[in-house]
Amino acid sequence: MPLRSTSTEDSARARLDLVIVTGASGGGRSTVAKALENVGYYVVDNLPESLMLPMAELAFESGDATRRTAMVLDVRSHAFTADLAGAVAELKARGFRPRVVFVDAEDDVLVRRYEKVRRAHPLQGEGRILDGISAERKLLAAAREAADALIDTSHLNENQLRARVEELFAPADARKIRITTLSFGFKYGIPLDADFVVDVRFLPNPYWIPELRDFTGTDGPVSDYVLGQPGAREFIDDYATLIGHTAPGFEREGKRYVTIAVGCTGGKHRSVAIAEALASTLREEGLSAYPHHRDKGLE
C-alpha cells in the first residue's frame, strides 16, 4: 500500500485531470478514447488496474504534457482483475481525483454489434455471445455502480458518441457538476444513463398538427408551440428549481455528471423543446447544463 502523500502533494495531484474509462466490450470504449484525444487528453489504452497508480504518478511528474490523462481499462487484458474500486481508492489515497466513466449498451445492441463484425465476445468461451456479455456484466458490476458518468451508447452512432464525449469533457472546472438534459422517445426505451426521468407527454403533441409535424423541437415553430402551452413554462421553472436544490448535494457527494432524461412519445418535438429550454434555464441559474437529443433524427 503506497504511503499517504502530504497535503501540498495532494493539492497538486488533485489538479491533474485524470479520467478512467471502462465498460462493456462492444460498448464504444475505443470511440470514447478517440474523442478524449480530440479534446486534449493523453490516452493510455488497455491498461491493467495494477498500473493505474504508476501511470498517474508518471503523468503528474510529466507536467503540462500529460496534464489531462485518460486511462482505458479492458476486460480482455490478462492483467484485468475487476478491482477497479481498489485501484481508484489507491489513487485517491495519493491525492488524485479520478473521474470514472462507464460505457454501456443494452444486451441486444451488444449482440448485434458482435454479429455485425463476426467476432466472439472475449468472455463467451464455448458459449453464446450473450453468455459472454452476462459474464462480463458480473465482472464489471461494481465498476458500473461506482462510475461518475454512465454513457449509454445503445442509440448512438460513432459520431454522436464522439460528440457526447467531447461535450462532457471539453475543458472546464472539473469540480463543477455538469448537467445533460437528454431528450428521448419512450417508444425507443428509457436511457440507461438517466439520473432523473421527466415525462412531458402531458403537453399536446405537435405531431398531430400538419404544419408542425416535419419540424423538430429545436425549430422555432415547434418550440414556440410547446413552450406556449399552459403549464409548460411553470414545469420548466419548477424542475430547474428542484435541480438547483439538489446540485450542491451531488457536488458534495462527488457526483460530477447528472443526466435528466426528458421523454415524449417519439423524442422529436415536445421532449426536444423542453430539454432545450430546461438547459437554458439551468444555465441562467449558474449551472453547467447542455441539451442532447438522442432520438430527434429517427422519425
Rank of each mutant, 00 (worst) to 15 (best):
A70E: 00
R15K: 07
A120E: 04
M52L: 05
D17V: 09
T81M: 09
A277C: 02
G127Q: 04
G244A: 07
D83C: 15
T81K: 13
I179A: 07
R97D: 08
D45E: 06
S30H: 06
G263H: 09
D64I: 12
L161S: 09
L212M: 09
R178C: 01
R294M: 01
V197N: 13
V101I: 02
I209C: 15
T259L: 11
L298E: 02
M71N: 06
E49P: 14
K116Q: 12
G132A: 05
A279S: 12
F250D: 00
S62K: 12
S271C: 10
G263D: 10
L161C: 06
D152P: 07
I274T: 07
I260R: 14
R112M: 03
C264E: 06
R164M: 09
V32A: 03
A59W: 04
L16T: 09
V44F: 04
E299W: 15
P206Y: 00
S183G: 06
H292I: 02
R162G: 06
P2C: 02
D10C: 13
K176I: 05
A85C: 08
C264K: 06
I177K: 11
R94C: 03
G63R: 11
F80W: 09
S154L: 01
V197S: 15
A240L: 00
M1T: 14
R29I: 00
V197T: 15
V39M: 10
A163V: 08
S7G: 05
A35T: 07
R113D: 01
R294K: 05
L182Y: 04
D224I: 01
V101T: 08
L278T: 03
A273Y: 08
D295E: 05
S7P: 13
A279M: 10
A146R: 13
H292V: 04
R162F: 08
H269K: 11
T241S: 12
E115M: 15
S11H: 10
R99A: 15
S30G: 07
V88P: 04
D193S: 08
G132R: 12
D148Y: 09
D224L: 03
A82Q: 05
A82S: 14
Q229R: 13
T66R: 10
G231A: 02
E115Q: 15
E90P: 15
A232I: 00
L156G: 12
A35L: 05
N157T: 02
I179E: 05
V109N: 06
L18S: 04
T265H: 13
T181K: 10
G231N: 02
A143S: 14
A135W: 02
S154K: 10
A89F: 13
N46Q: 07
G297H: 13
A135K: 07
H121F: 08
V262S: 05
L156I: 03
V197G: 15
T216W: 11
T265C: 08
